[in-house]
Amino acid sequence: MEVRTIKVFTTVDNINLHTQVVDMSMTYGQQFGPTYLDGADVTKIKPHNSHEGKTFYVLPNDDTLRVEAFEYYHTTDPSFLGRYMSALNHTKKWKYPQVNGLTSIKWADNNCYLATALLTLQQIELKFNPPALQDAYYRARAGEAANFCALILAYCNKTVGELGDVRETMSYLFQHANLDSCKRVLNVVCKTCGQQQTTLKGVEAVMYMGTLSYEQFKKGVQIPCTCGKQATKYLVQQESPFVMMSAPPAQYELKHGTFTCASEYTGNYQCGHYKHITSKETLYCIDGALLTKSSEYKGPITDVFYKENSYTTTIK
């Protein structure tokens, strides 16, 4: 009895394709271990004539594949690729409408935090270190965002349907971005203890939790000093293409032309909904596939993004 075979390709990165001759009487799992086709788990399936010449994702289970996976995804987590594939199996079914010149995501599976993050990423200057993220990001900007969303979920250790947080998501993504040249110098002034300067680099240099107003941050924000008295913390120097200011959701007025974009969060910790506000020729609110415009805006804002380049204080 002759062994019926077909020729397929296996890959971990969709760049390096490895030619395989597979036995049609055995499952993919018996031949390769966990195997995925377009995100779908085909591990328990036997090869079919229609699979001839198709590319299958496999887990990096030998040295060659491990090197290829690390170079593309910059992670050695053995569960990463499987999590990416199972997320992709959902995100490829989502709709990605162009809204006001940006790629958004039609609401499904509690994905409003991903839509808000995706919209924000198209408006701030950011370059990702893992080629996987950078490639998928370019495709997302062009309207094909399924891979990018699935990668975000995998890097953030999230599953489809789980509630997510924009600030946490951005923080994970910033860790995989090139923020080497970003720098922030802060000064804390206390009447009792004097003053202390701190220099922050990388992710810490672009994120701040405690106030939404970048102007206020430049002037000074009140913080408790270690001595128990009130101290003032203010920005001395900022070198970065953008800054992200966050605070627990509270009524906040966004003035046209003073910011790049913002995240609105309605609801409580267990259950809520994100919308995205962007400042173009007027203010726009993007909620999944829905767009509304207004000249002014007041609502429960939790993150505001500002364009920056270089700032030095005039406070002496």
Rank of each mutant, 00 (worst) to 15 (best):
N147D: 14
V12M: 09
N111V: 01
D38E: 13
V236L: 08
V236H: 06
A87N: 15
L102S: 06
G228S: 02
T314K: 15
T159V: 10
S294G: 10
K218D: 01
G33Q: 04
D62H: 08
T91I: 06
V185S: 05
K255N: 08
A150K: 02
F80S: 02
Y84R: 03
N157V: 03
V3N: 13
K298H: 13
V21S: 14
C271E: 08
S79H: 12
Q31A: 14
C182L: 03
T266E: 10
Q251T: 12
L65G: 08
R66F: 13
H51T: 04
C285I: 14
A140G: 04
M170L: 11
Y234P: 00
L118T: 05
E296G: 10
N110T: 02
A115F: 05
N129F: 04
L17V: 09
K229P: 02
T64G: 12
E52V: 13
L163H: 10
P130H: 04
Q134Y: 05
R66Q: 12
T278M: 11
F217V: 13
G267W: 09
N16W: 06
L119G: 04
D303R: 00
R184N: 04
G161A: 06
P224N: 14
Y113P: 05
W94T: 04
P34F: 10
T260P: 01
Y113T: 05
P248T: 08
S50Q: 14
T10P: 07
V67L: 15
C261V: 01
A132R: 05
K54R: 14
N129P: 04
K201A: 08
A108R: 09
S171K: 14
T199W: 04
Q238K: 01
Y96F: 12
C156L: 08
K46E: 13
T159I: 08
H18L: 07
Y297A: 00
G257M: 07
Q238S: 02
H74E: 07
Q122M: 05
A247E: 01
K46R: 13
S181P: 06
Y113F: 08
Q175K: 09
S310H: 15
R167I: 02
T302A: 13
G29K: 08
T266A: 08
V221T: 08
E52D: 13
Q251G: 08
E264N: 02
V243P: 00
Y306S: 00
C261P: 00
K316A: 15
E296T: 12
Y265A: 00
S25N: 14
D62I: 06
M24V: 14
Y137K: 03
